[in-house]
Design a protein around this nucleic acid. Structure first.
Lengths: 343, 343
DNA sequence: AACTGCCATGTTAACGCTATCATCGCATAT
DNA sequence: ATATGCGATGATAGCGTTAACATGGCAGTT
């Protein structure tokens, strides 16, 4: 069962044309603009194409028409399920409009991002979606020269490159901690990754700090965990470290629900009451959040919607050639209070 | 800030050649086979390329060289985090070898799969990875004609199309239920999706049934939930339905950890002791499995490794032109017993 | 000095498609 | 009948790159 030649003699539009007794141009037309072809001819071509199992070479078409049919998305990580929802939203809408999605994983590294960007621009994508705040000046230059629509997501940049469909991580951080303050907590800690590898977490932390300072509360309870705070284990070790260094902490905000889960289970293991002794909240409203015991307070983010609307903006701009009026959309977030932060 | 012309006058290798004072062929050579170019010339070309920010058009290169540099992967769903790990493994290895990954989401539907396959074959991928057991005859035909390496994953097909890096869902199903029998459970139920939309779950269930029958136990305790058993809610409603219809059940196998989580929390809510009254186990060993209370027994699947090894097989075959000796790899699985099934 | 061989570079012709313009009928208007 | 217009199809010329072959120059050999 091991055939699969190195390269098959692929069926081309010329083959189909010969079989249908027309010119290859008519084949192209039949497939792309059937209205311009007489029904009889169309019939012949379609039959021939089916019989030969013709699959048009999109790269050739792209080269000729200068439309690659590609849209690229750059992710900080493929492991983060929230980002994946965004990819999902993109994929759904783009496919429905005839585009293919190219996915690039930057491993949370600006160098990787630039390198990958260069590589991916070689595919001449018609638009680029960035889930990633860390664009280096070099990356920015590359994007500028490419002169294609850009949509930034998962953020609310002060100096947007082009379009934006996102929300403010800072505001989310501010709002969550503010609401904890309202609930009466006053020693509120933050558990997140190092600033340079976890930019979103860092922005959330900044908002968190601002809220505490505004309320006149201490803002120095901060535990830094490993590179990308998406590992449950980070929550496990993080909460232990927190309780050792800051035993007076009464509420803990975790950079993601994943770390919150770790923190939660570690508290259970150690017999620390949640929310009695320590309230816990996270970000992302992951699937499991409402199903934990206690149910986890979390900030719901517009993950899927960002992808979907980013795709819609792209399609609209490419089709119309003009940018939609509302090409900067702040989709906000929603704080969902659950048992884990009940005073 | 709205520039971004419809189409920029892209820099081509001809431009670089002119600037460097060489022929465009020398530019191509400098980039692809620098050893064949004298150091002085190479220098000139590289400088010119950098100054002009030249990004080679990979589609044009693909057309000419008949090497697209694309590898495609077809997924039943983008939502399933297990599949994502596989994509991760693919992506890592393929990128390191200069390939781009095209991702297609089939929405658990054979029609979508065939349609998507046709579309994606238009990109002339150099290999295809299938995470998906449902290839229709039509899809099979398309693949045959494409004559490219195929790697099937997440399965152990009896009639493989080409290479395989997977494991047997049936055996996993058999093994898990067998181990529950050994632990002394005798009314073991199964909670999964409908056969036609959840093929993996169905195979697991068949293995499960076989194990029960072998042991002379009843094998009719079966709850069917919604289309894709990846929703926690399915576990919630599923376990209620189970307890109503089969109150004598003492252990429940869920098609995924996601449904197991739902079942677990619903049991807690209702006050049903786990594992006292009902033992619960799942598949996938999701991140949260060891962190639940009780910790969830689960079957660990080689998600990342399948992707990585699939990519390695592909690269090896394309580079060497010959198929590696061990082009069918059963990576097995591992049953991890935890508290949720402790007798 | 003429010959051989090889290295560095250039020239030409695709790759498979689409844009563009040309052509050819045929129906309708004059 | 001739002119006009338009719908359907065909011929041609690229798109930006690489494969394959051609060329030219220079070192080493006899």
């Amino acid at each position: 069962m091991n055939r699969r030649a190195k390269k098959s003699s692929s069926v081309t539009s010329r083959d189909v044309a010969a079989r249908a007794g027309v010119s290859l141009m008519t084949v192209s037309r039949t497939l792309r603009t059937p209205d311009l072809v007489s029904p009889a001819t169309r019939q012949k071509v379609e039959t021939a194409a089916r019989e030969l199992k013709y699959v048009p070479d999109l790269a050739a078409g792209a080269l000729s028409s200068k439309r690659s049919g590609h849209v690229a998305v750059l992710l900080p990580s493929l492991r983060h399920s929230g980002f994946l929802r965004t990819v999902d939203g993109l994929s759904d809408t783009l496919r429905a409009n005839g585009y293919h999605l190219l996915i690039g994983d930057c491993y949370y590294s600006p160098e990787e991002q630039t390198e990958l960007l260069r590589l991916i621009l070689g595919r001449r994508p018609e638009a680029i979606v960035l889930v990633s705040s860390m664009d280096s000046p070099e990356a920015r230059e590359l994007l500028d020269q490419a002169a294609i629509p850009i949509v930034e997501t998962w953020d609310w940049p002060s100096d947007p490159a082009d379009m934006v469909v996102g929300f403010s991580q800072y505001e989310a951080g501010y709002a969550l901690s503010e609401s904890l303050i309202e609930l009466g907590y006053c020693n509120i800690g933050f558990l997140g990754g190092p600033a340079h590898t976890d930019p979103y977490g860092e922005q959330r932390r900044k908002g968190h700090v601002a809220a505490l300072e505004k309320a006149g509360l201490r803002a120095d309870i901060h535990v830094t965990v490993s590179d990308t705070p998406m590992e449950i284990q980070d929550g496990v070790t993080g909460v232990s470290s927190l309780r050792r260094r800051f035993p007076e902490t009464d509420a803990l905000v975790c950079a993601t629900d994943m770390t919150a889960l770790g923190a939660l289970t570690e508290c259970q293991r150690r017999g620390w009451q949640v929310p009695g002794e320590l309230a816990i909240a996270g970000y992302g409203n992951f699937d499991f959040a409402p199903h934990l015991t206690p149910a986890l307070t979390s900030v719901k983010l517009p993950s899927y919607r960002m992808g979907k609307q980013a795709a819609e903006l792209i399609v609209a701009q490419i089709d119309n050639g003009t940018q939609p009026a509302d090409a900067s959309r702040n989709l906000g977030f929603e704080i969902i209070h659950r048992q884990s932060t009940q005073p």
